[in-house]
Nucleic acid binder design. Structure first.
Lengths: 206, 206
DNA sequence: CTATGTGAATGGATTCACAGCC
DNA sequence: GGCTGTGAATCCATTCACATAG
């Protein structure tokens, strides 16, 4: 990691590079050029080289990049090795589905606890996790060393829950509610607004 | 709609404007300046004005924008009035959750059918929808006039299913699989990669 | 005097193009 | 010769700043 100010887009692509390299490595491919990798991903070769150049001189002129070495370097940059602990707050249908979703594990995320405020759910096991009361966030987030919360409560409860999350010491929130969370800059927020994604799509097909 | 080449980002913000205007209207606010609206959304006033200017002269100098009129204009631009029909392909935990998710209805989306290829699911009712075999896409998509598919099959099946979708005449796909779908440009694709969102977050909190 | 609408300036990311190394 | 690494050029989105309208 040589330089600062790495664009967020670059980080996102890095993860895609990782996936392709992993796949290529399993297939026995030893070397790959920026052109070949770019073609797989339908982007430009110069984009690949520029992205990688933020982190040093990772390739060999004339022959390209060593697949496994580059894969490991990216894993290192992204911290894929380390496991991050995640909780899910809001055990409606979406929250429950995400609690069962297997795609997270592969990238080193572990769902360590789930929360809701309904009396019916608190104390019961949902998708293999005991459901805790949202008012216990304060206690459990620090105790279990949880960094990231997935927020899937109803829109009306979004802001108050986000504030409880901030008070609990959470570092980041993946927000599935269609509400702009107003927290201090200390908490990194990323929004997944499903209805909005659909609407954007539907605009562009008319 | 006066000009072409409207940035995708603008369309996304337009939907946010719509939400805020709707809320303000319900509260009885009659007028709003670009500054006030921008402050609510934590963006710049010039951004609001630039976005709106793509679609004509929507405000009044000196007093700002008429909340309800602007809301309706945006609804018109985005086609919020019209209902779009959506299907969900892949009835695993995520697909089932989305089939039950209520957030879509508010923006004029209706889930009209769901698909899977497992013998256990086909023919049974899931979240109120009869589950069809994926091989019936060809028949049902045109029959029910479905524009958009939500793709929630396992990664291994993503590409073959996407091809079936394209053949069925679908116009857009909201892709939840971590796979780059390779279809012709005719099908508009938007990707929601949950593990990736989490990974990006986790990079920025270290 | 207030707040829009917009051309011009800025900022950020992508792409080009080529010098430099294998 | 082949391919990287990287400044320079380009493209696109955001922000500024001000003439203009109410």
């Amino acid at each position: 990691m040589l330089k600062r100010n790495i664009p967020e887009k670059t980080i996102q692509r890095l993860l895609l590079y990782y996936r392709y390299l992993n796949f290529l490595g399993q297939q026995g491919t030893k070397n790959i050029s920026s052109k070949s990798l770019a073609d797989l991903m339908e982007i430009r070769d110069s984009q690949v080289r520029k992205d990688l150049s933020y982190f040093g001189r990772l390739g060999k002129r004339g022959s390209g990049y060593d697949v496994m070495a580059l894969r490991d370097k990216i894993a290192d940059i992204l911290g894929i090795a380390g496991e991050s602990k995640v909780c899910i707050v809001g055990m409606g249908s979406l929250g429950s589905a995400l609690a069962a979703y297997k795609g997270f594990g592969a990238l080193g995320f572990k769902i360590v606890s789930v929360f809701d405020n309904s009396k019916q759910k608190v104390g019961r096991k949902i998708r293999g996790h005991i459901c805790h009361d949202i008012d216990k966030l304060n206690k459990i987030v620090p105790r279990d060393d949880i960094d990231i919360a997935i927020l899937t409560v109803p829109a009306e409860a979004a802001n108050e829950t986000a504030i409880k999350l901030e008070q609990s010491g959470i570092k980041a929130i993946l927000n599935f509610t269609p509400v702009k969370l107003s927290l201090s800059k200390k908490v990194k927020i990323s929004n997944v607004d499903l209805a909005m994604e659909l609407k954007t799509l539907s605009f562009f097909i008319r």
